[in-house]
Each structure stands twice: as structure tokens, then as C-alpha cells.
Amino acid sequence: MKKWKELVPGAVVLEAGSSEKFKTGSWRSFRPRWIEENCIQCLFCWLYCPDMAVKVVEGKMTGFDYDFCKGCGVCARECPGKKGQKAIVMEPEGK
């Protein structure tokens, strides 16, 4: 953490999106696991994730950003999956 004298005067932050340096992934006690064969690419997981931790490339869900995922489980709860089979399951962290 910076000392106050090292900060820009006037409580100004000049670097947009600098929070990216603060990894919130260590908060997690549950970890989402993606089961690709059940994924219908609806992107609800991406939409509802409060931590911008669902990786979407060219309009397709590709997995999670575990540096930032806090393990809330919203994505798993909202995932419709295929034929009642969820494409995201939550598992205890560190197992």
C-alpha cells in the first residue's frame, strides 16, 4: 500500500481501471467449474457475474477468471444448462 505522500494530490486517480491490480480471487471458498458439454452459450453467467470474472471470447463463454472470481455462485444458480444439466457447478475451494 502506498504512503499518502506517494499519492497524486487531491485524491485524484489517474490510472483508469487500476483495481485490476487487486486480485479478489483469494476471497473465494467455493469455485465454479464449467462443464462445457452442458453449455448452451446463453451468456447469462457473463451477464450476471458481479465481478466480471466470466471469460467471453468472440461472444463465447470460455471459462472463469479465477484471479477475480469471488465464488458467489450467482453464475451457477442462473445457468440454465442443457436439459436440466447445469453447465456450472460450485465446488469447495482447494479440494
Binding site: G17, F22, K23, P50, D51, A53, F68, C72
Partner: peptide
């Protein structure tokens, strides 16, 4: 609105802002 914010896990507000 980017990751690295420190709202609680599962908070509704960041999703509102994002939308």
C-alpha cells in the same frame, strides 16, 4: 466497471452498474 472492486461476494449492485 472492472473487476478488482471490493464489493461483497454476490452483491447485486455491481451487476446493476454493469448493465
Amino acid at each position: 466497471f472492472c473487476h478488482g472492486h471490493r464489493m461483497c461476494s454476490g452483491c447485486g449492485a455491481p451487476t446493476v452498474v454493469k448493465m
